[in-house]
Design a protein around this nucleic acid. Structure first.
Lengths: 170, 170
DNA sequence: CAAGTTACTGACTGATCAGTCACATCTGGG
DNA sequence: CCCAGATGTGACTGATCAGTCAGTAACTTG
């Protein structure tokens, strides 16, 4: 659905609560009324968008991991990390995850986030063959990427910011 | 300020955009009009709340780290981690950080987040004496805590969820 | 007690936004 | 050509919310 893929970028800016449906509609080149005709409501649209986002994230990770061919788990994880860090350039997929996580007080959104994280964890485990501890570490540094992108720490030239983003940003 | 400390809990539920000032006012036991009299606007109130939140977080970490007395950096970091994980029980301080991070498209909020993270990073480095890489790892696992709290993964009894929260939640 | 100052509020306004609905305008099949 | 379904929209409504303002109550100080 074209609307959903445009919605990723639209919601990525300000998140669920702060993005009017009219903005998503404009980004998709249709009227707000039509969006409500295709989706049961703003919430349904957002959930579909989040699902789509995690699809793309999972696909990106799998592609990155499989690119190194059969290799030691740590090497595959490293390749997947590099693929994820590359998403920082785009920003949209990372920002949407962040906003979805922050809107988890809405049960439907929380469930979408759980589904998405579950898919990511399973894909990373399966493709890398790494043990749970290594997968957890992978996820932790992934979440650190989110902070770096949100606060745009790559643009901060101070010692503390370099500590946070060492080896990740720029 | 009493209003600010009550605002932490109020904003922690649904975040900046989804929490009306009237809700904060009610939590503080005053009228919405009075909140606008004391603060330049909703944004000013939120920024003050975020600053207060990072004050508390930093203080919690420092207290946790100093409790072990002079010790090896890794041991101090472990104590600080334990102190941070304890915040999960409260939820409010962690959720507010998350919501502040997600509202970073508002420049004033982004600046408040940067100030807060800077204070945390400096405090952790100073009290633990750990090298930047270890501090970065500390922060990464801290961010992982955020995901666990947001999506309430402690309540999910599935393999992927245990991978994410191993050694942190439950 | 008078006068000033601080603490606080009810009642409003203007803007924004989710969601609806009646109404177009295409499209292909018989 | 006619009709049925799909694709789409403009114009509305009702609710919510940030922010204002005029005014009241409660202290403080001389």
């Amino acid at each position: 659905m074209k609307i959903v893929s445009r919605a990723v970028a639209a919601f990525a800016h300000a998140g669920y609560h702060a993005t009017p449906v009219s903005e998503v509609a404009e980004a998709a080149g249709v009227s707000p009324a039509y969006v409500f005709r295709l989706f049961p409501g703003k919430l349904g649209l957002f959930v579909a968008t989040v699902d789509h986002c995690y699809d793309q994230v999972t696909a990106t990770l799998v592609r990155g991991g499989e690119a190194v061919g059969p290799a030691a788990p740590d090497d595959v994880l490293a390749a997947m990390s590099a693929a994820y860090v590359n998403l920082i350039r785009d920003r949209n997929l990372i920002m949407l995850q962040v906003h979805a996580q922050s809107a988890c007080d809405v049960p439907e959104i929380r469930d979408a986030v759980r589904r998405g994280v579950a898919r990511v964890v399973r894909a990373v485990s399966r493709v890398s063959g790494a043990d749970p501890g290594a997968v957890q570490r992978f996820l932790a540094y992934g979440q650190l990427c989110h902070l770096i992108v949100q606060a745009d720490l790559g643009a901060v030239d101070e010692s503390w910011a370099r500590t946070v983003s060492a080896g990740i940003s720029h």
